[in-house]
Amino acid sequence: MKAIRVHATGGPEQLQVDDVPVTEPAEGEIRIRTEVIGVNYVDVYHRQGVFPVALPFVPGMDAVGTVDALGPGVTGLSVGDRVAYGELPGAYAEFVTVPVRLATAVPDGLDSGTAAAAMLQGLTAHYLAHDSHPIAKGQVVVVHAAAGGVGQFLVQFAKRAGAHVIGTVSSDEKAALVSELGADHVVRYDQENFREAVRRITDGAGADAVYDSVGKDTFLDSLDSLRPRGTLVAYGRASGKPDPIDPFTLVQKGSLKLTWPSLTHHVLTREEFTARADDLFAGLLDGTLRARIDRTYDFADAPAAHARLEGRESLGKILLRHP
């Protein structure tokens, strides 16, 4: 089969098409013939070596396709079923073999592109909004990189919960998108100090939670944007790894809570994975959630897809599709 592999860490040019063997599903696994593959920033981190992976490797953490083979002991899915999977490397390939606990059926009425656009980023936003800090009606939450894939879903989940949302963005085009998704205030962090903006918007009280995927450049100001007993949910480091802080700083700034969670630890069972996916898919079907597709590239054009994502040019999910 054809697969895109990384043999050495570096730029998008390290993504190359190789011929690799098709693997047989083991106990509790299924093999999926991929149709649409998600491109996520974690793929960039893996390719760059920020999150080290043994070389060579096939990147990609989510895809939608058709069940091609079942391993022993698999129940609940059949060969020919259309499924979505997430949270395991190897998606940039014609076939991918995954544990059945990380896959779920795609409902009729939901097209494969939309399902793929929602999968990893939607599941990430789901646990961030429902578990890392359960957003409640009337709360004020700040979403950094609100026009990004996870950010868009966070804005929507927060509004669905009845929260007041402050989104931060870096362009007028992104500001318009985030406003369209329902954000109550949009801050151009490249033009205004977002900490001061949050304090102004909340009359000095601060936010109940800040969702920060930016990292080093925003981390300390994110802490300073919180009300007493507020929560900083850090889940990315697009600008670099934040500097260490003394835990006593959290007391000094108002008995704050700090967490850095991972999707891996929020889909530990098949039941948890499918429950999150079912809620996500239901929202897409009833119109309470939207998945925006930025651009779809042919499978072999993965380097161009990475360059667009890494250049922060995208306004939604980037996908790869087999010709």
Rank of each mutant, 00 (worst) to 15 (best):
E94H: 14
V17A: 13
V22I: 13
L123C: 03
D18H: 15
P99Y: 04
G71L: 01
G76K: 02
G90D: 07
Q121A: 09
Q48V: 10
A117R: 04
T97G: 07
A69K: 08
V79G: 00
G76Y: 05
K2P: 10
D111N: 11
K2W: 12
A69R: 09
E27W: 08
L55S: 13
R47V: 11
G71K: 01
K2V: 07
R33Q: 12
V20P: 10
P59D: 08
M1N: 11
D111H: 04
L77P: 01
A91V: 06
S112A: 14
V67Y: 03
D43R: 08
E29Q: 13
V20G: 10
P52K: 12
A8G: 12
P21F: 10
V83W: 00
L55T: 13
P12Y: 09
R5T: 15
Y41A: 02
V36Q: 03
H46F: 15
D18L: 13
D108Y: 02
G80R: 02
L102D: 00
P59H: 09
G73Q: 02
E13I: 10
I4C: 11
Q16N: 14
K2M: 13
G90L: 07
L128H: 06
A105D: 02
P89N: 12
L120W: 04
V58T: 15
P21I: 10
Q121V: 12
G10W: 11
P12F: 09
E24H: 08
L77C: 00
G76F: 03
S78R: 09
L88D: 05
G60N: 07
Y85Q: 07
T97I: 06
V74A: 01
L110N: 06
T66E: 11
E35R: 12
G122Y: 04
D68A: 13
H126S: 08
V22L: 13
E94C: 07
V64P: 03
G60M: 06
T114R: 07
G60H: 08
L77S: 01
V96K: 05
V20Y: 10
D68V: 04
L15F: 11
A84Y: 05
L15T: 11
G28Q: 02
D111Y: 01
L102A: 00
P89A: 11
I4E: 10
V67H: 00
V96F: 03
L123K: 01
G11L: 13
F57V: 11
E35K: 10
H46I: 07
T104C: 08
T114H: 03
T23C: 08
F95A: 05
L55R: 13
L120V: 06
V106Y: 02
G38F: 05
T9D: 11
L77W: 00
G60L: 07
G90N: 07
L128M: 06
A69V: 04
H46W: 14
R5E: 15
D19V: 15
G28M: 02
D111W: 04
V74I: 05
V53E: 14
P99V: 01
V100R: 06
G11N: 15
R5Y: 09
